[in-house]
Amino acid sequence: MTDNSLAGAQRIAAAQNGQWQPLPHISSAALRWGLNAAALIYLVLVYFSVDINWARVAQGLDRGVAFMASFFSPDFITRGGEIAIGLRESLTMTFVATVLGIALAIPVGLGAARNIAPAPVYYFCRAIIALSRTFQEIIIAILFVAMFGFGPLAGVMTLAFATIGFMAKLLAEDIEDAQRDPMEAVRATGASWLQWINYAVQPQVMPRLIGLSLYRLDINFRESAIIGIVGAGGIGATLNTSINRYDYDTSAAVLLVIIGIVLCSEYLSGYVRKWTA
């Protein structure tokens, strides 16, 4: 305390004589230099563990340039049929999986909100969420393909499973942040549990729930473009094949289609959010 005020008095005196610099963000000099040194050491370690093969990189640069160039000459036609089928499959998978996922996420989300769920239910639902959020869609897809065989069903299951973790977590957080007064007021009227959820909780979380659903629809579509790589249907298979064939014009076409759809969905969700807000 006295140390601080002494240092403060010194700084004031220095400022009076025209010397002033802002206080450093980390007040302890040892910690400050320690962190800098740690960052430097980390960079050196990373540099040695990356082990870049510059010859290979130089060789690949041509392909990189070719790929960039193909964005200006995308080929939608040659493999137009495959793109169309892949796209249709991606879109249908996305929609089914989002609806299913949200339908399942609502009970899980209710169960994972500490302020309305009893402890055992809370921990069970939180475990489901943690499991679903930790593993990338592609890992889940590999497992589901092994269980259900190739095809869009494995994809639907994958995306629905991922949707549960995502939506349930955000829904639960939303419910935990909901205002307590209306919840207590409705409970005080003698409403049943379902009535209570319907009147006190639902109105508070509904607008955000709709917004998040649209956002998740968007994410699911983007994810559907990759789970095809491991055989779970969708446009990912088309994309993967074209890249492996170095058929960058088709790859660029697929990527542009994905970008276009994501853009459209963003505009659309902006409007829907305005209506429902």
Partner: peptide
């Protein structure tokens, strides 16, 4: 880099002292 000329810092100090806040500069 917040390296203001010494005269500027002096003036800033004087003004802060004038408005009674010289002890709050940090």
């Amino acid at each position: 880099f917040r390296k203001f000329p010494a005269n500027d810092v002096k003036q800033a100090y004087r003004l802060l002292a004038r408005v009674g806040l010289e002890s709050m500069l940090d």
